[in-house]
Each structure stands twice: as structure tokens, then as C-alpha cells.
Nucleic acid binder design. Structure first.
Lengths: 255, 255
DNA sequence: CAGTGGTCTAGACCACGTT
DNA sequence: ACGTGGTCTAGACCACTGA
């Protein structure tokens, strides 16, 4: 009757390509190894470069590959487990593997949504602390911490008016105020231009946006918006330490 | 001297396009409204369809748009805050807004990485419970829960051999065993074909993969791998309730 | 400078949902 | 059947990195 459809894949080429590449990555490549360039790979698989790129983009999204303009495509190391502080940990910035570096501090009016949560008026100036989180020598997250003046009442106005020094002063005062709890949410986003620069990525790169509300005795003491590199990070929330397996590994070992 | 470069944007077209569209979305469109089709929009902005699509893809990734083949592109509602159980909550499945529906239960050998965490040998059969999480009538997550036989010793072998009924039996037995703690990690992934189907998305759609390890008195009682729709979900981890603002709103209101 | 990935074009055809 | 978004092509040029 009907025509014999041999190989009627009914599966997009880029999807099949991704599978093939993924398996090749497991068997034939070591972490850090450089892949052939895109034109070469596309020719080798007999597809247009755009199609090949679609497969590479997915693999990069899953943390399997790392691509850098002018350099090439390399096999990415497994994702880094990054501990996100639990309620007990207090203000991030303590542990050895949880190194937040204050970069700058300015004062500005907070975005309306932030102002509402902080319970300050929309046109009130708040401290905005810029911090970078570094793990294994790599910048993995960039944060904006919004601190109303009322949360750091003893902050001397004579201190450095901006810069890392003032950022440290604000953090010190926050520590002194103590902490009663936190609220946290995680969602997918794309990196703003400034965050992308700090994270050594292109604007629009996928990031995990962690929004944290810090409660002190008087109410909401501060709100933090931290953007983590989604390609390289696995956020961990542990009662008793980080999980040792990654989703990628599960996939790869599921064969 | 040099040529006067008026409008030397040095900013990709699709990026600028995304900004323009984003603003238009805020001012001229209501949630659920249908946008003009891609060919029309591309023509209107004077760009190729592929370029227009690049902008739409980003906006969809950020949860601003929803695109469905054969239907069109619509303005997405704000992301749903989905509570991820904290240590106190025990086995997910209780609360009103945390409805996990058992779908099926089979027995199979777990992927190697899972088997290692469960502390069972790689060729040992475990129960695999399939659950779907529904919020506001929408499927937001699909889960595979791996349960070694030793965690549900009293599970009658005479029970339904598979299907939703058996899934419920396994969950009931797990409840009986109690829970001492959990470990959790969140990372970005792309939907497998089966998960995509449950979530009404195309394979490869971006998802937040939540891997949870459940501890009982005897050790690791089960491991869960849940994939949440990244476009529509905002995962919340609260000491005291969910955050009420979303990243998108922050962005939009930051103007 | 050469080589890489990033952007962009102007088409074509396909799979799907609705009518 | 029609219109939608999804896939795919075969080019072109640009921006960046490193030798």
C-alpha cells in the first residue's frame, strides 16, 4: 500500500543533531577540548550552518558546551554547584565557597516593584550595592542589593560616597542589624547588558534570577536581585549539603 | 576627520527590537491579546523574519510572550509563583496550591547517577513514579520520582502492577515512612520529549530542573527530578510566604 | 592578520490548529 | 483549506580574539 518510509524521522534535524553531538561529546571529547568550527561541523553533517547552530545553542543552554566569539567552541566542565544561603546562613558573604565581592555602592531610586516590597516610597533614594560572586576564580553571579536608608541608620554620611569602600560599610551595618528570615524566588531571565559584562557573557545570555527578601526586626531590611549564569551554575538549597549529581549527568548516564 | 556616524547603534537589531516590542507590550497590549503574525511584524519593522523571531524568542524566554504553532503569539500573564516545598513540608502533595497528581508507576533500573545517590546497585529495579503538578488548571511541572523497593517495604506486590493506582500506593507508603530532610538543586535544562508533551510544550523548551533528595531514617528514601516550565513558572522558597514580585515586573517598572 | 562565533537576509517548505 | 509558528537553506557581513 503506502510508500515505505525509510527513515521518516519526523524529528527536527537540529534535534537529532543535538543527540548525535551529545553522544560524541561523551565518548570522543574531553573537558576543555576544542570542537571543529561551525562551518566545518555543518559541512560534516551536511546541514546549513544555522541548523548546526541551533543544536549547539541547545547544548550550550544545557551546560555541555561553551562558545566564545573569536575563540571557538569547547567542551564545558560539569556545572558548578552553587550554594544559595538558607535561612540559617544569614547575610551571604561568609563561607569559603560563597565569596561575594562588593564592587560598588550608589544611591538611587529603586524600581517601583522593589520600592513596594521595601515599603518605601517610589521616589525615595536607597543604597544600591553591587556585588559579584566568585567561585573557583570564576564570576558566577552579579547582584544588586537594595537597602533603604532606614536599614542602615548608623551609616556615616562621611564615609566614601560611593565605590567598594562604601559597599563594605553598608554590608557591615546590615550585619549589625541582624536577620530574622528570608524569602526567595528563582526564575529564568536573560542577562542585562551590565550583568552580562560582569559575567563575561553576551547580553541576553540565559541567567537564573534569584530574588531574595531579607527580613529584620523592623520589617523588610533589603531586597537582592542576583543573576546567576545559567550555563555554568546549578543552584543548591541544602538542609544538609549539596547534591552531588547534575541533571546533565543523569541524562548522559541514562543510556 | 572621520565620517559622522549618526545612529551608530552598535547594538544588534534583534536586541533593539526586543526593547521596542517589550515597551509596546507594556503600553499597548493586554494579557492574552494576540500579536500580529511574524511575517507582518517583520515587515512592519523592516527586518527579516528570522531576526524578528530572535527577539520574540527572548521575550518568550522571559515569560512575556506565549507562542503556539497554528495559533499565534499572545501576551503572557505574569509568571506563576510556584512554591517548592521546604524541609518542614514533607512529601509534596498536601497543600491546596501544591497539587501533584500521580499519573503512573512502573519499575525500572534507575539511571546510574540516580542509582548511586539512592545507594542501590545500577541494575537494581526501583519504582518510578510519574507525577504532574497542576496549578490554576495548568500543568506546570512533570516529575519522575525514584523510589527503591527498600523504602516501601510494605508495598503489597498484589497491588495494581502499574498505573495511577500503584503510584498512589507508593506515595502512601512513603508518607508512612516519614521524612527527615531534603536536599535540593535547581538548574536550567531543556525538556525531554515526554516531559514536553505533559507540559504542552515542544521538545527542547527551557525548563527549570529541580532535583530533590529525600532523607528518611534509613538514609536516602527517594530522589525526585522535576522539570518546571521555565516560561511560566517562578519557583519560590519561602520561610514565610512567597515573594509577590516577579523579575519581569521589576524590569518593566525600572524605566 | 586570519579565523572564530554572532548577526542578518530572503527566500522555501513543513506541522499544526482552526475553520 | 487556510493561516499560524517551526524548521531549514545558502549565502553575506560584522565583531572579536589571538598570533
Amino acid at each position: 500500500m503506502g510508500t515505505t518510509q525509510l527513515e521518516s524521522v519526523q524529528e527536527p534535524k537540529y534535534w537529532h543533531l543535538k543527540t548525535v553531538l551529545s553522544e560524541a561529546l561523551d565518548s570522543d571529547f574531553a573537558v576543555g577540548e576544542v570542537l571543529p568550527n561551525e562551518r566545518e561541523l555543518a559541512a560534516r553533517f551536511g546541514v546549513a550552518r544555522a541548523t548546526l547552530r541551533q543544536a549547539l545553542e541547545q547544548l550550550e543552554l544545557e551546560g555541555r558546551l561553551q562558545r566564545r566569539r573569536g575563540v571557538g567552541t569547547t567542551v564545558a566542565p560539569p556545572r558548578v554547584g552553587v550554594a544559595v544561603a538558607t535561612a540559617q546562613n544569614g547575610w551571604a558573604g561568609g563561607g569559603p565557597d560563597e565569596a561575594w565581592q562588593p564592587v560598588e555602592c550608589t544611591t538611587a531610586t529603586a524600581p517601583a516593584a522593589i520600592a513596594a516590597v521595601l515599603d518605601v516610597s517610589a521616589d525615595e533614594e536607597v543604597h544600591v550595592v553591587r556585588r559579584i560572586r566568585v567561585t573557583h576564580g570564576q564570576a558566577v553571579a552579579a547582584e544588586l542589593l537594595y537597602v533603604p536608608a532606614s536599614s542602615v541608620p548608623e551609616l556615616s554620611a562621611i564615609d566614601a560616597p560611593s565605590g567598594a569602600a562604601r559597599a563594605r560599610s553598608v554590608m557591615r551595618e546590615l550585619h549589625r542589624r541582624g536577620l530574622e528570615g528570608q524569602d526567595r524566588s528563582v526564575e529564568l531571565g536573560s542577562a542585562r547588558a551590565d550583568d552580562a559584562k560582569e559575567l563575561d557573557r553576551l547580553p541576553g545570555a540565559p541567567v537564573l534570577v534569584v530574588t531574595t527578601r531579607y527580613f529584620a526586626s523592623a520589617g523588610t531590611a533589603a531586597v537582592s536581585v542576583a543573576t546567576y549564569r545559567a550555563d555554568t551554575c546549578r543552584l543548591t538549597f541544602g538542609d544538609s549539603g549539596a547534591l552531588e549529581i547534575s541533571h546533565d549527568e543523569q541524562e548522559r548516564q541514562a543510556s
